[in-house]
Simulated scan of single mutants.
Amino acid sequence: MNTLIKAGQILGRGLEQAACRIELKRVGGDGMFWQRQGGPLNTGLWCPKQDWKKLVLAMTDIPDPVNLSSELLPCVSAAMLEGEASWLLDAVEPMPSACGLLPEIYPVLTLTHAEVGDITCVLINWPQDQWQSIVTDWSPFAGSSANLSLSLVAGFALQTSSSPQLPAVGGGVWLDGDIRLERGEALLWCNGPLARVTLAQGEQGGKFSLMIDEIMVDMDLLHTPVIAEIARVTLPISHLGAMMMGDKLQAEVSLNAEVRLCYQDEEENILLGTASLLRSGDDLLAQVEILA
Rank of each mutant, 00 (worst) to 15 (best):
P94K: 00
G14M: 05
D283Y: 04
Q159C: 04
L88F: 04
Q50N: 12
P40C: 04
V92P: 01
P236R: 00
P107I: 00
R260M: 14
E258K: 09
V253T: 11
L73I: 11
G44S: 01
L45Q: 03
S69P: 00
I22N: 00
G100I: 04
G44V: 03
V116C: 09
L291A: 07
G192V: 15
L45S: 02
G246K: 09
Q165D: 08
L261M: 14
E266R: 15
A168P: 00
N42V: 03
P94E: 13
L261F: 10
P48M: 02
A79E: 15
L24Y: 07
V76F: 00
M1F: 05
G206Y: 10
Q132P: 00
R260K: 03
P65V: 12
G38K: 07
Q17G: 06
A58Q: 12
V197I: 14
P65G: 09
A251C: 08
E268F: 13
L187A: 10
L240G: 02
A257P: 05
P167K: 08
G117Q: 08
S163F: 03
V116E: 12
L88A: 06
N2P: 01
V76S: 01
M32G: 00
E82N: 13
A231M: 12
I105D: 03
L11N: 06
S145H: 06
R180K: 13
E203Y: 10
A91Q: 12
S162H: 14
M219L: 15
C47F: 04
G12W: 04
L181A: 12
D283W: 02
S162T: 14
S280I: 06
C47H: 05
C99A: 11
K49G: 00
A200P: 03
D213W: 05
G117P: 05
S86P: 00
T224N: 07
T234G: 02
I105A: 03
G29H: 09
P140Y: 08
G206Q: 09
P65I: 13
L68W: 10
D61T: 07
H239D: 11
E182W: 10
L89M: 15
A58I: 06
P167R: 06
A251S: 04
G117M: 06
S151F: 05
I134H: 07
I179V: 15
I179F: 03
L194E: 02
G184D: 13
A292K: 15
M211V: 13
P225R: 06
M95Y: 07
W52D: 03
V233E: 14
